[in-house]
């Protein structure tokens, strides 16, 4: 039996909204410790990794590990009916369940229940090495979203370079080019923290960075981690309960 209540149901809704443009079908991997999602986009360029620890839920019960295969668009349709202060209670049988039950309960006297059909999804699990990164940038998530959105009008590839003066986001395109420099700042409402061992410069597809910023409502700050010649990690922490992490392979010069 899997049964878990998420008091702030809107957190789960925000997770599904954050990943549904990248991931069509995915497994909710439920275990005693957590509910996790790992899935690549169809082009195998980026990967989404979600973790919600059991402590994020009340009444968490997972008797044995289970993979619940969902279609994110269909899950999103059901979550449209979630009230903004509703809790969600998830329920599924142990043995290859064919549906996931979700109860939406608000402060009012209304309880809504929905059943989402589940699918068998073959997944390719990738092992992500737990290695330290050369540069880690923490900045406001809405500021990162604005930068990515603004630079998209100039071209489709963004060079992110982290150096002594800060982090530079650069785009070169047919109509011209642009650079946005983000510097370390201690200001409370606009805090930027840059930890750098060695300067790093990598190229990324803005289209994917833009997909990642769909997770902006989940977190005040985003953490961007880079090392030479490896995928960037764009992490949206979910309080102390988990995260949504996006990995994106760099582009290389021909």
């Amino acid at each position: 039996m899997f049964e878990a209540q998420l008091v702030e149901g809107k957190t789960f809704k925000a997770i599904i909204e954050a990943i549904k443009d990248l991931v069509v079908d995915c497994n909710l991997d439920c275990s005693e410790e957590e509910v996790a999602i790992q899935s690549m986009d169809s082009a195998h360029v980026s990967l989404v990794a979600v973790r919600l620890s059991a402590s994020a839920f009340s009444n968490y019960r997972c008797d044995r590990p289970n993979s619940l295969g969902i279609n994110t668009a269909n899950m999103s349709k059901i979550l449209k009916m979630l009230g903004k202060d509703d809790s969600i209670t998830f329920k599924a049988e142990d043995e290859s369940p064919d549906s996931l039950t979700m109860l939406f309960e608000g402060g009012k006297s209304t309880i809504a229940d929905f059943e989402l059909k589940l699918m068998d999804i073959e997944t390719e699990q990738l092992g992500i090495p737990d290695t330290p990164y050369q540069c880690t940038i923490q900045m406001r998530a809405d500021e990162f979203q604005r930068i990515v959105r603004d630079l998209q009008v100039l071209g489709d590839t963004c060079t992110i370079s982290c150096g002594k003066e800060g982090v530079r986001f650069s785009v070169t395109g047919a109509i011209g080019n642009g650079n946005i420099l983000v510097r370390s700042s201690d200001e409370d409402k606009d805090k930027v923290t840059i930890n750098m061992e060695e300067p790093v410069e990598l190229n990324f597809a803005l289209r994917y960075l833009n997909f990642f910023t769909k997770a902006t409502p989940l977190a005040e700050n985003v953490v961007i981690s880079m090392s030479p010649d490896v995928p960037v990690v764009v992490e949206y922490p979910i309080e102390e309960f988990g995260h949504v992490k996006f990995y994106l392979a760099p582009k290389i010069e021909e």
């Binding site: 990738l126 994106l248 021909e254």
Partner: peptide, 14 residues
């Protein structure tokens, strides 16, 4: 223009 890498070139399957 730079070429897009595939993620599987970086992370091994488990």
């Amino acid at each position: 223009t730079p070429m897009q890498n595939n993620l599987k070139e970086f992370f091994a399957m488990v």
